[in-house]
């Protein structure tokens, strides 16, 4: 990899540095692009918000959802499955560990009515909008 760069030094002494910067940028892009764990999709209508998170292999008992005003927090742990003795691992890509994420919704949530369900490793949280935060129509009376 040094070959062509050494030859070009006479023409552009900073080529190596530029290459390094490009490489670093690429490295950062890779990490900045990646969605933090767990990946989440959020939808909202006038009356409620829906949050879906992909949590395969996570026990619903190990997930905690908290709601305060318009902020939903999701935390929990994906436990590692300890393989039995005498087992060789050829590929270990499925990670484990604890996670925590918070999201700010566009409106305050009625926390008494929040519902969460877990199916096929996907967590779905339905968060109804708090009555107080809904826009109110004001009737105009003609005098």
């Amino acid at each position: 990899m040094f070959g062509p760069e050494l030859i070009n030094w006479g023409l552009d002494p900073f080529q190596g540095v530029r290459g390094l910067r490009r490489e670093m940028g690429r490295l950062f892009d890779q990490y900045l692009d990646a969605e933090p764990y767990p990946p989440v999709n959020i939808w909202a209508s006038g009356d409620e918000a829906v949050v879906k998170a992909e949590l395969p292999g996570v026990d619903p008992k190990d997930v905690e959802i908290t709601v305060k005003d318009s902020v939903v927090s999701l935390s929990g742990e994906r436990k590692a499955e300890e393989p039995a003795e005498g087992v060789v691992c050829h590929r270990c890509e499925r990670g484990s560990g604890s996670f925590s994420r918070s999201f700010s919704l566009p409106f305050a949530v009625d926390r008494e009515k929040v519902k969460a369900s877990f199916a096929n490793g996907v967590l779905t949280i339905t968060l109804p909008r708090a009555e107080e935060s809904k826009p109110r129509k004001i009737a105009i009376t003609a005098e």
């Binding site: 990946p39 989440v40 939808w43 209508s45 919704l105």
Partner: peptide, 9 residues
């Protein structure tokens, strides 16, 4: 009937 606010996956 919902609007997508964030797509993480």
């Amino acid at each position: 009937g919902h609007e997508l606010l964030h797509r993480g996956y």
